[in-house]
Amino acid sequence: MGKKDKIAIPKQKTRWNVYFKRYWQLYVMLALPLIYLLVFKYLPMRYIILAFKEYKLNTKLWDMPWANVKGQTDYFKYFKTAFGNVDFRRALWNTLKLNLLDLIAGFPAPIIFALILNELCFKRFKKVVQTIAYMPHFLSWVIIASLVTQLFAPTEGLINMFIAKLGGTPIPFLDVPRNWVATYIGTGVWQNFGWGSIIYLASIASINTELYEAASVDGAGRFKKMWHITLPGIRPTIVVLLIMNLGHIMGGGFERPYAMKNNLVMEAAEVIATFTYKVGIQQLKISLTTAVGLFQSVVGLFFLLTANWISRRLGERGIW
């Protein structure tokens, strides 16, 4: 960085022209995703300003008054309201907790699965297993949640009926907060490990096979090869995905907690996404939930940048 770039700058204009003339087809292709980003990611961003305004119906965004308490302008009114709200604080904590557990349980699963698949010699079996493992990814959370209820309901769930038939005591999978969290995390891992492994398998496939041959010659066994060749080979992929996942630590989908929650476990199941829906959409407190959303994004960005910085410090590439 630094010196080199400074010299390069004056030349950029001509290069840009040259590149554009030579590769214009590629630029045209690039236009499509750029327009997508523009329309769906950048344009809506102007509504962030709602976090600092009083939302009004039938009023243009710029005409809405600034957030105020009895006429006294207070731009951060809704941030204060949010942090003063017990439900929000609980949702914040649950979001962090569930996402962290998801990361701990869910992040290594596809890597391990990819490593195991990679060791399989019988190709057809490998393909079948792979396809079956992908499948849950294509089910919506609404369907998965009803499957979970059918399987894990306190007395009428298939598993508890089975336990009861064998003379055991049914396990409250869904009606005790701690157990619910375990069910929630487990279901998430189940849904995602197959799909998540694709990228690692692709990454493994790109490792030079000569390395394995050389290792075999040197007398390395399966685990040695896995440890010294495969894992280092996919390390950049792992790091990039880890950074991206850390960016989501404050985010997380709406569907999964919303579909899986029930009244007995709300203290563990309310996350920011469901809180935003309940308060913002159902009660039309749009300024408040925009503030929550903005806070969420800023924290997410902070995590992403920190993780990226650490990874670069440790000698990995980072995501840019």
Binding site: P154, T155, D175, N263
Partner: peptide, 8 residues
């Protein structure tokens, strides 16, 4: 009914 609260 034992499972009532699980259904929404």
């Amino acid at each position: 009914w034992h499972d009532f609260a699980v259904y929404g």
